[in-house]
């Protein structure tokens, strides 16, 4: 397919070897797509159009179909994340216990809405749909480490300290 001729990835990039292995393990069948996207995002942190074009070509899938899949699922990102990522759980228990207030505070304090990355690329804010730690609600995850059962005051203090700009 002409679309992918110019998008062959650098052969010496070991990350691509990893992704190729996932594709091969699944015989490069069309149903390998989502597993491959997971592998590519794990390797690169996000999925840019070069990556997607290469995957489409390797799996012999129409590019539009690949794009449709990538944008259907919340987990996949088309843009790189910042140095740090703060995930705020918006599951029901966390909502009831005040994570909506937390998101409002983040908007005021750091001018970030879920999905945004700060202009200095320092912090990405993401909203996660229930991490399943509802008994610890409200829950948030600075760089993937779960923090739960904190009051609003404690939680905001933890975040400010984590980002190194406590008042």
């Amino acid at each position: 397919m002409p679309v992918n001729e110019s998008t062959a990835p650098p052969a010496d990039d070991t990350r691509w070897q990893l992704i190729d292995r996932v594709m091969q393990r699944l015989d490069r069948r069309p149903d390998a797509l989502i597993e491959t996207l997971h592998a590519a995002q794990d390797a690169f942190g996000y999925l840019d159009s070069t990556t997607l074009a290469h995957i489409a070509s390797r799996l012999r899938l129409p590019p539009a179909k690949v794009f449709g899949v990538v944008t259907f699922y919340n987990h996949f990102r088309l843009k790189p994340k910042g140095e740090h990522t703060l995930a705020v759980c918006t599951g029901t228990a966390c909502h009831l216990k005040g994570n909506d207030k937390m998101l409002a505070w983040l908007r005021d304090r750091y001018h970030l809405a879920p999905g945004d990355t700060s202009p200095d690329n320092r912090l990405s804010l993401v909203e996660v749909r229930c991490v399943g730690a509802c008994a610890l609600a409200p829950v948030f995850l600075p760089d993937g480490a779960l923090v739960g059962k904190k009051s609003f005051g404690e939680a905001t203090a933890i975040i400010e300290e984590w980002l190194g700009d406590a008042p």
């Binding site: 069948r29 069309p30 149903d31 390998a32 797509l33 989502i34 597993e35 996207l37 997971h38 179909k65 449709g68 899949v69 259907f72 699922y73 919340n74 987990h75 996949f76 749909r129």
Partner: peptide, 25 residues
Amino acid sequence: IRLGAGAFVCGEETALIESVEGRRG
């Protein structure tokens, strides 16, 4: 194992099948 990727609708069995087949759920 097939990893989901964040779509509640994939709990619906036919959507889940679409997803296992590598498509939009």
